[in-house]
Design a protein around this nucleic acid. Structure first.
Length: 135
DNA sequence: GCCAACGTTGGC
DNA sequence: GCCAACGTTGGC
């Protein structure tokens, strides 16, 4: 099982929107590094749902329910998307500020490359963020 | 609104 | 293949 972190602007698509839909295509990713991570995703992997721009915090956990397939919003046939479903909401959001301040997360890919919308997490990093959400 | 980071485009 | 110009993302 692998762990990931995926960003969305909540005014476009929020964690609550995903809960309301039950399942959604994670489309519109147009970055090769992020695409590579999505291709590596397997059914049952878990991902942190992070709100960028507004909130700027991790808010929930989702499950990968369908592996990489052509992105339905793409005409060129070049890009893929995965499907995700809500797993559970975090008890308390974990802010970017808190993650940056925590030395246990110093090597997090998202913190090193702030513009990357899909990034991998180690199990330790994933567990740490979940623990922070309960503190 | 600004700016840093970084990806893409196009001229050479 | 290099690199300057430009556009976008995302945090502040």
């Amino acid at each position: 099982m692998n762990y990931w972190l995926m960003k969305s602007e909540p005014d476009v698509f929020s964690y609550d929107d995903l809960v309301a839909k039950g399942k959604a295509e994670w489309d519109g990713v147009r970055n090769h590094a992020a695409q590579g991570h999505m291709k590596a995703m397997r059914k049952g992997d878990l991902s942190i749902f992070y709100h960028s721009n507004i909130g700027i915090e991790a808010v929930g956990i989702m499950t990968i329910v369908e592996e990489a397939a052509p992105d339905s919003t793409d005409d060129t046939g070049k890009w893929i998307a995965v499907h995700v479903a809500p797993h559970r909401k975090l008890d308390k959001p974990v802010t970017l500020k808190a993650m940056k301040a925590d030395s246990a997360l110093a090597d997090m890919v998202m913190l090193r490359q702030s513009r990357l919308s899909v990034s991998p997490l180690t199990k330790a990093q994933f567990d740490h963020i979940v623990a922070m959400s309960k503190a």
